[in-house]
Nucleic acid binder design. Structure first.
Length: 409
DNA sequence: CTAGACGCCGGCTACTGTCC
DNA sequence: GGACAGTAGCCGGCGTCTAG
């Protein structure tokens, strides 16, 4: 049955009547008539729950022509205990706006007004909590300074009882001096308990337990299999992945596939800041990360650099063998940490490489013995040859024009 | 000093979705 | 259909803070 037809002919649903009322307020009822009506009914406009009146009407009703406005909309989900901000992590600010010019009102008594931050249900039906049962942590009362104030100190309370997912709005209203400044209300956003934050959103470091990775459940079958092979940390896992992916897949068993594994590694890498190392054998240098991921190679004499994607298969396999050797021999090799500032500041040649070696920048490559039980794959295509998406997602892609990499040769 | 409130951390369970 | 991970919701342990 068509509900629209039904409501037109019979009883009108509440939401429909609300919409009609709002339309009426916005377009039909002249503002002056409404003001007169409120006066005749002895209704104090300041006592009216302003958020129940359409915002445009509020602005017209407002004699001072001022409104509060959030700098940006809150983008959910917002997790309990974490500061409120937009999706990009920008702080949430509140401004006093002159409606006629749309500029921030930075002078006068109103520019120093005291403002209260409240939590509203999505549908504006009610404010949530009183002083004691407020969902807000942090002082909900703030004072404007030159017409602006940051409200990023506010978060939603995190208690032992987890908060159910709910859709809310933030509202800011002036509590002193009360002169009818229009309230600011955000668009609705979801608030969730921090305990329900997925693994994908949590930070990650190399020393974290391997079950912090996506698709590896703590004490789950994958975790148990990895523990049996002494793959305990994120670093162990990633090193196995980059030096011998086939072996890692074998360890994980038939329920792990390449797609899932790549996705997990990709996601982990996006949250890690991997250091880069260089290892040299005769005329060739390989650049790789803490976890054995080949970034690129460089021919020392010619000075030519190639990123991983630019390498032909045979050279990829050869470079991977060099990375494995660097891992096998641990600190006995020439392995240079590339993150030294000196590399970013103008070293562009062989001297730079020698400089770093001479000034104690020689670093042991993380040696977790993965490479020691690698099959000898010389001139066979290595395990991550076909995972261009992994390197494609690199925040610091190896490229001949990259200053910090070029400087090694 | 102590009891209670509060917040953080993490475990457990049920349900759901995905993949083989 | 079975195996598995992810998600949501609930709960307990423990540390810290604060008022009495």
């Amino acid at each position: 049955m068509d509900l629209g037809e039904h409501s037109a002919n019979n009883s009108v649903p509440v939401s429909s009547s609300c919409r009609k009322l709002r339309k009426f307020f916005n377009a039909v009822l002249p503002i002056v008539r409404l003001q007169k009506l409120m006066k005749r009914l002895c209704v104090d406009p300041a006592a009216v729950e302003i958020s129940t009146i359409p915002r445009k009407l509020q602005e017209k009703l407002n004699p001072e022509n001022l409104k509060l406005q959030f700098s940006n909309n809150v983008r959910g989900p917002i997790y309990t205990g974490l500061p409120i901000g937009d999706q990009e992590g920008n702080p949430l600010d509140l401004h006093l706006i002159d409606c006629s010019s749309q500029n921030i009102m930075n002078c006068g008594a109103e520019a120093s007004a005291k403002v209260e931050i409240l939590v509203l249900e999505k549908d504006f039906t009610r404010y949530i909590g009183g002083e004691k049962s407020s969902l807000i942590r942090g002082n909900p009362q703030v004072s404007l300074k030159n017409g602006s104030v940051s409200v990023s100190h506010i978060s939603f309370k995190h208690t032992r009882n987890s908060l159910k997912k709910r859709e809310l709005r933030l509202c800011a209203r002036v509590v002193y001096p009360i002169n009818g400044i229009v309230e600011a209300v955000t668009k609705p956003f979801f608030v969730k308990d921090r305990r329900s934050m997925g693994k994908s959103l949590k930070p990650l470091i190399l020393d974290d337990q391997v079950w912090k990775l996506q698709t590896i459940r703590k004490d789950g079958p994958f975790h148990n299999r990895l523990m049996n092979e002494n793959i305990e940390t994120v670093q162990d896992f990633l090193t196995h992945y980059f030096l011998n992916r086939e072996n890692l897949l074998r360890i994980l068993g038939r329920h792990m596939n390449v797609k899932k594994l790549d996705a997990a590694v990709n996601q982990a890498k996006s949250k890690l800041e991997l250091k880069r190392y260089v290892y040299r054998q005769e005329n060739l240098r390989v650049v790789f990360t803490d976890v054995g991921e080949l970034i690129g190679v460089q021919f020392c004499k010619e000075g030519h650099s190639f990123s991983f994607q630019q390498l032909v298969q045979e050279l990829k396999a050869f470079a991977m063998e060099m990375v494995k050797i660097a891992f096998q021999n641990g600190s006995q090799n020439f392995k240079v940490l590339l993150d030294d500032d000196s590399f970013y500041n103008g070293f562009t040649s062989e001297e730079a490489y020698n400089y770093v070696i001479d000034t104690q920048q020689r670093q042991p490559v993380p040696n977790n013995n993965v490479a020691n039980y690698m099959p000898n794959t010389s001139l066979t295509v290595n395990n991550y040859d076909n995972i261009s998406q992994i390197n494609g997602a690199l925040p610091h892609q190896f490229h001949p024009d990259d200053n910090d990499i070029v400087s090694i040769g």
